[in-house]
Design a protein around this nucleic acid. Structure first.
Lengths: 241, 241
DNA sequence: ACTTGAATTTGCGCTCGCTCAAACTGGCGT
DNA sequence: ACGCCAGTTTGAGCGAGCGCAAATTCAAGT
């Protein structure tokens, strides 16, 4: 499984998960029960948390950091399916009745992850009211997002798609700085290309152009949106101009 | 809701649903219970079964016919999210925690549909062992399919995408004829374009070319794949040729 | 400080597939 | 039987964005 992290010996604190949507409104005892079946692992930047095609025997919750979910074609081309933010469930193949992970999960930065064996799934569903519903809402939400993406790819130009992707990134993982909102984890031109179905060259050209217009400020593996409003205008303007 | 069908007065027969995966292994009594909460409606070709943005107060199962699931951009461009085949659940917004339908469902041919109010969802989950799991497997499967589609759109040329789409259609809704496998419902060049993110013109050109190579035979709203093997070769050949 | 390699930038030419336009076809309704 | 119209075909031109290539910059390690 490419487990690079070391295991924390128990001592998991309720407060880690108490205010996550998946465990909303639970008593302290219930939270302890949830944590009993879990273990916490660290994963170094760029290490796999699980790999596409591997037996899906665990499910996960990201406590801190950012995770990149990646799929690879038989020909070796990659695409980034999504980024996982803190507090989100991921790798929940079991909820979809899948025996193997359909994608790989890679730590975009050093991460802390809660990990349950699949055998705990049933228990969580039974003992945590609303857990199942939250999990399925997660999946439903991702289905929607993915369909939105298909739609974008069908109807929008590359420039609009990249603008939309950046806006989504700053909304989900933005950190305010003096210059604007910065994406909270290292992200390359190549990464953005793999999110939008284009090439790193085109992304680079777009970012350069936007930089000279004062819409973004970017560097190595780093993007800051300095003028979100203008970027929205770029994202929304119709193909016919 | 644009309900164009008329309602069948009870008399729903167990045999309608007995061998569907969603109701596998159920007793006769349980099946009756399931049907008790449902009603059966007919929907004329091209009529809406539900509309994008409408209150999602029911969920559905297609008994016979074919349903097109369509999303529309604010600018009025359409895309076909998927086709529903006989025996499949659809419009299960409730399973994803959605209050409104994220897409429209249109009868591609005259259809017969089982319809439940959302209030029955809970009951079905409790009384039908495996029903919930089947529903979530359905959603999980669709998430996968949709991600596959994103991947195709990112990495494949139009020709390969259209070929893949046709192969999927004949696999899921193919009917053997003397000349090959025919797609079982009326489908236009425009429809295929909306499934693959291209234009009807390009689809028309591709089908014409394939027709002259003897790979497909097509007419008005009708496509027959005469040489599936060759079409697979077209679908799989890499961009670099 | 120096080395090394990954990430980025930028230029150039070309091609795939889109847009626009026009003609054609076949099925359906009256 | 006829007309109509949605669906289809085909042509011509062009432009967005890709492939290829080369130069440059920056960060991390020794």
């Amino acid at each position: 499984m490419g487990q690079t992290g070391r295991i924390f010996m128990s001592g998991l604190d309720r407060s880690l998960i108490a205010d996550l949507p998946a465990f909303a409104g639970m008593t302290g005892e219930a939270l302890d029960l949830v944590l009993q079946g879990a273990r916490s692992t660290r994963h170094a930047k760029n290490s796999d948390i699980f790999a596409e095609g591997g037996i899906a025997d665990h499910f996960f919750l990201l406590l801190s950091g950012h995770v990149r979910v990646v799929r690879t074609t038989p020909e070796g081309e990659q695409m980034i399916a999504r980024y996982i933010n803190e507090g989100e469930l991921f790798g929940i193949a079991i909820a979809m009745g899948l025996a193997v992970y359909p994608a790989s999960a890679v730590a975009a930065v050093d991460c802390v992850v809660l990990t349950w064996p699949n055998s705990e799934w049933q228990k969580l569903q039974e003992t945590v009211p609303g857990f199942g519903a939250a999990a399925y809402r997660t999946i439903g939400g991702r289905l929607q997002e993915t369909q939105n993406r298909v739609m974008e790819m069908s109807t929008e130009q590359v420039e609009q798609r990249v603008a939309h992707a950046l806006l989504r990134l700053v909304n989900q993982a933005g950190r305010k700085t003096e210059n604007g909102v910065e994406i909270d984890f290292p992200i390359s031109r190549q990464d953005i290309a793999e999110m939008t179905g284009t090439t790193l060259h085109t992304v680079s050209r777009l970012l350069s152009a936007w930089e000279s217009e004062g819409v973004v400020a970017s560097g190595r593996q780093k993007v800051t949106v300095t003028d979100p409003h203008r970027l929205m205008l770029i994202a929304e303007r119709r193909a016919g101009r």
